[in-house]
Every structure is written in structure tokens, then in C-alpha cells.
Amino acid sequence: MKMTRLITRRRAIITGLASAGGLILTRYPKDLPPTYGNLLRMGDTLTYAAHRALLPRQSLVREYTPKDITSFPATGTTNPGVSAKTALGDAYRGLQSGAFGDWRLSVEGRVAKPRTFSLAELKKLTSRTQITRHTCEEGWTAIGQWTGVPLSLVLDAAGILPVARFVLFYSYDDWVDSIDLLDALHPQTILAYGMNGRDLPIPHGAPVRLRVERQLGYKSMKYLRRIVVADEFDDGGKKGNIQNGWAWYTGI
């Protein structure tokens, strides 16, 4: 009773493995984060490559109404001026005493016109207000309203170059992290200076924090000071999240 089957086990396994491998291999290696020979990082990369290959590129996260706004814990650093005994902490304390009038956001790297933005200059650009869900890696969620300027407008103003692949962020609590260009240019990726209708409070990242709505909360870096556009992946050295055991892509 021999019959030819359309899907044999062996063929299905080979096809499955080939397509999974293809998701990774067909990407230009410099477009992928390093795995450091770590199996967990290789799994992260598989998830990242699968999301980028299979998901629609610019779909928007759900936006809520003002009555959906919930209580919102402030975790991690809640004031870099107090918790960081460093030059950055001292600098932040100085900025805070001047109501962030002297704060400047540096935009540099692969841009035609490297420059800085004051808070007033950011507020002059077209703003976007969105009520979204913050999804913490710990498992809790909170809904808040964010007002800010789309990162794409800031990058355009600095003349982002066609070679750009990643955008790095540096903070006053001394973290470095990055996102790829797809998330950087996403319409809901904003540099937020307002929360729930007021100035962004210090515990939530004053004067300006990032919002990356299609990833977990820790990618939305608080207390921004510097943005660097890069043409290949940069792990940020010892201050980088990926060097400290945290997945770089957290759209999961």
C-alpha cells in the first residue's frame, strides 16, 4: 500500500529549517545585531529577522482614549541627578535647576548637518500626541498619553544620510541603546516632552524621552542627551543593554 504523499515528514522538516535559516542568512550581516556566540542572542536574532521578514513594516500600535489612561509606575532610574554619582549626574542636576533651559539634544553621526536641539526647538517642530500602552519586560502594563516630535522629523532636520541603518541613544543615566531604521522612522516613534497633558515629569524621563511603541518598555529610553545615526550595528560598549544580557530587539 505505497502512496506518494504531498507533504512528507522529511520534506516538511527540510523546508521549515531552510526557510528559518533563510530569514537570517538573506539579510545583510551588518544589518543584524551580534550574537557573541550566545545561543540566547541567536534566538533573539531569529525572532528579529522573522518579525522583519513577516510583519507589515509600518503598522501602528493601538491608540487609546483619555479615559483609558492608568496609573503609571516610575521604575529604573527615577532621577539621574540623585542616583548617578557621576559627571553626567552632576550635569543633569545643573540642567534641572535651570528648568532644562540649557538642555541640548545632540544629533550626530551619519547626518549631513550634525546639530543640537534645545527643548524650545523640538517643540517648534510638528508635534504628535498618542495614548499608548507601555509594556514593561517585567510583565506590567500602563497606559499614558505622550506628546512629542516624531523622531523622523528630527532626523530629517539633521539630514539623515542614505547609508543610515541604526539610531543610537545616549542618556543622562548612562545607558546606550539603539533601534533599527524601521522603528526609528515609524510614525509612533517620538521624542516625548509631554506626558498626560503636562511637561514630562523627572521620574518618567524629563526633559525628553524616547517612545518606541512596538517594543518593550526598556527600549523607550529616558533622559536623552545624544542621538547618533550609524551605518552599521554598534553595541554601545559596556554601557549597552545588549552587553548586559538584555535582548536588543524586544518586539516580542
Binding site: 540566547l40 503609571f72 509606575p73 516610575a74 521620574p203 516580542i252
Partner: peptide
């Protein structure tokens, strides 16, 4: 709704748990 600062470090080292 309210906000409050967490006063402790959660000593959270579970980044590997999610990746695994």
C-alpha cells in the same frame, strides 16, 4: 490615576529568561 517612584532596585536579572 497616579504615578509613584519605585524605591528599590528589583535585582531583576531575567533578561535571559525571556530570550530562552
Amino acid at each position: 490615576p497616579v504615578t509613584a517612584n519605585r524605591t528599590y532596585d528589583i535585582f531583576n536579572q531575567n533578561g535571559w529568561g525571556r530570550s530562552l
